[in-house]
Amino acid sequence: MEDRKMSNKFSLITDGLVKNNPTFVLVLGICPTLATTTSAINGMEMGLATMFVLILSNIFISLIAPMVPDKVRIPTYIVVIATFVTLLQLLMQAFVPDVYATLGLFIPLIVVNCIVLGRAEAFANKNSVGDSALDGIGVGLGFTLSLTVIGIVREILGSGSVFGWKFVAGDGILAFVMAPGAFIVLGYLLVLFNKFLAKK
């Protein structure tokens, strides 16, 4: 019994990584996925920032959900999410201003990232605080992982480096750092994911 409970908790986290991967399976939150993955490190930072908001909003929403009347559910959630996003903005400006400058507009836009509101609607408002936190961690990690993977691919092809470590002298194929590369890399990664990982 105890064992099953443990594995259930564990699966809350692992589900987000592969089975319910927000990018490759659910295809949510595509805007930041495309825009911030010009390098592996940028993608990872964006993923972590989203995870921060996701965990906090999941916890807070699961706490207040029983008290929120059904009709004002969505506005309430949006206020909560926007609050944590602003919190994140202020903290980033104070302690990691360079990262904030790189990710720019896409930090405030976490508010309208469908993943965050989606998890609030689909999970946090009907589960316990602990489970919601784990779900936030799981989905957040899944998002971070996919953004990092896309970032790595684009950085290798576009700049000939990984996490800033250069293995090709000179430039890569610049198109991959620019807008078209984002769409094309995500498209082909989805193909690979469909072919090899997706369980029918």
Partner: peptide, 17 residues
């Protein structure tokens, strides 16, 4: 494996180009 979104994304990439 390309059906649906993947091919749409690749098309969008070519349009972006």
């Amino acid at each position: 494996a390309f059906k649906g979104l993947p091919v749409a994304l690749i098309t969008a990439g070519i349009m972006a180009m």
